[in-house]
Computed example of a mutant assay.
Amino acid sequence: MWKWRLTAAGMNVLLGVPGVVPVWLIWYYLSNGPLADAGWTSREPTENDGMQLWLVIVVFVVAVFGVIWWLANDWARRRTALAPHVYWTAGALLTLVPTGVLVAGSV
């Protein structure tokens, strides 16, 4: 049983590598759209095409990544003995590890 736990953990970390793209797109949209409107961030000075196109791109990329992530984790969860809420929480956090490493390394 521990073999499947390690497999699921490794799979989520590996899924986090391409998962950097949806996280970045969400941040880019929020920082140039609603957060800039609220005065919490400043807009990208060269971003003058509007945010509607970015919203379409963000929704599509996040939806595709979400479906792939969910299907892979649904398959792996059935092979582990972990409770569902523990598995899904750990899977989501492990998927964010590569993004956290890149953010920490950029400081």
Rank of each mutant, 00 (worst) to 15 (best):
A81R: 06
A63W: 09
E44I: 10
W4Y: 15
V58W: 00
V64D: 04
L96T: 06
W70R: 09
T41W: 03
V56C: 06
K3A: 06
W40T: 08
E47R: 14
A76L: 13
A8T: 12
V13N: 02
W88I: 02
N73W: 00
R78Q: 13
I26P: 05
W27L: 10
P34T: 10
P34V: 13
V58I: 00
V21R: 08
I68F: 07
Y87S: 01
F60A: 15
L25F: 10
W2S: 10
L6Q: 11
G33A: 13
L71H: 07
L35A: 12
N32R: 04
V58E: 02
V67M: 13
L30N: 09
W88C: 00
N48P: 03
V64N: 06
E44P: 08
M11Q: 14
A63V: 14
D49N: 15
L82H: 13
N12H: 05
Y29D: 11
T89A: 14
N48S: 09
W27R: 09
G39M: 05
M1N: 07
P98I: 00
W4P: 04
N12P: 05
G19I: 02
L6W: 11
V20K: 01
L15G: 05
V64Q: 06
M1D: 13
M1F: 10
A104N: 08
V58P: 03
V101W: 13
G10E: 02
A36P: 05
A72Q: 04
V59S: 08
T46F: 14
A81N: 12
Y87E: 02
K3L: 08
S42N: 06
W40L: 14
V67G: 07
G19F: 00
G16L: 00
W27M: 11
W88P: 07
G19S: 09
G66S: 06
V101R: 14
D49E: 08
V97L: 03
L94D: 06
P45C: 02
L25C: 04
H85L: 11
K3S: 15
V17Y: 04
S106F: 11
L53E: 10
T7G: 08
D49L: 10
V86G: 05
V103R: 15
V58Q: 03
R79M: 01
W88D: 06
L94M: 08
V103P: 11
T41A: 04
L53Y: 14
G39S: 03
V61L: 00
A8Q: 11
M11D: 11
S106E: 05
G19L: 00
N12G: 01
V86C: 01
G105W: 04
V21N: 04
W54K: 07
R79Q: 07
D49I: 09
V97M: 01
